[in-house]
Structure formats: C-alpha cells, structure tokens
C-alpha cells in the first residue's frame, strides 16, 4: 500500500493530464456538433501542453530567469547552479505548441463558419442527411 502511494505521488501529474487528454479525444470522436468537436480538440491540445510543462518542474527551484543577471558579467558574477532553476526547455517547446493550437483553432472556426453558411446547421448528422438527399 505504501508502495502504491509512493507511485501515485510521483506520477499523479502525468495521470491527470492523460485523463484530460482522453476526455478531449473522446469529445472529438463522439460529439455530433462541429463546435463541440473543436472544443474537444482544444482540450486535447491544452492537456498535452500542461503535460509537457509539468515535466519541467524541479523541487526547490525557481523560475528560469537569472537573478543577478543584468549587472557585471565576468568577475563578480555569482555562480549559477542548474539545480536552482527549473528546466527551461519544456516552456520553450510549449510556447510553440500554444501558438500552433491557437492557429489550428482559428482555421477550424473559419471552416465551421463556411460549413454553417453552406448547410445552415452545425450538427453533423443533419449535414450528412442533406448531402445524401442531393
């Protein structure tokens, strides 16, 4: 039992974000309304972003901005220890991923507007019924 608690405490962040990802994936596959699918896509991508950012955490470290940075560099500069600062690389990668998620959201909404103008509805089964009628 103590072993299980150890594992849960060590890994619970990954599990929570994976659950969130699966909720988003489920919404994308199952929902009928096009905008709900877009919302599911956004949940999925945001969960991946949170997953990555959580891997950059470090116990007892602070944000990755050097404190005595803008002073003299060279003699008199303090020794910088990597254990004092959290991992900057996941943050950098996720800046990119956030921008990509927003871009995909914009294009998806533009496409949904075009579909709505054409078929007058956003429910996928009604659209398929209209297509089959033709």
């Amino acid at each position: 039992m103590g072993d299980l608690i150890q594992i849960v405490v060590a890994k619970y962040n990954y599990w929570i974000y994976i659950t969130l990802m699966m909720i988003g994936l489920y919404a994308m596959i199952v929902k009928n309304n096009l905008v709900k699918k877009i919302v599911g896509m956004n949940i999925f991508q945001t969960a991946i972003i949170l997953f990555y950012v959580s891997t950059g955490a470090k116990r007892g470290a602070t944000i990755p901005i050097l404190e005595h940075g803008h002073g003299e560099h060279g003699a008199g500069a303090h020794m910088i220890h990597a254990v004092d600062y959290i991992n900057p690389l996941p943050h950098v990668l996720m800046l990119t991923a956030i921008v990509v998620a927003v871009a995909t959201l914009g294009v998806a909404l533009a496409l949904a507007i075009r579909v709505y103008n054409r078929y007058d509805t956003l429910e996928e089964d009604e659209i398929l019924a209209q297509i089959r009628e033709k």
């Binding site: 955490a57 470090k58 007892g60 990755p64 940075g69 900057p88 690389l89 996941p90």
Partner: peptide, 29 residues
C-alpha cells in the same frame, strides 16, 4: 514529478541554465 535527477533536467538544461549569460548575455533563459 519534479525529480532534479531526471534525464530531462540533467542532459541539456544545465548547459542552457549555466551558459546562457556568458554566451548570449540574456538573463531570461
């Protein structure tokens, strides 16, 4: 979670954290 000895924290990021000031003189890593 938040393990300081994980591969992600020991492979590339020490170089970034320690060498940023002397290679680029930008404090925000």
């Amino acid at each position: 979670w938040a393990d300081p000895a994980s591969p992600a924290s020991t492979h590339l990021s020490p170089h970034f954290i320690e060498k940023t000031m002397e290679e680029t003189s930008v404090p925000n890593i």
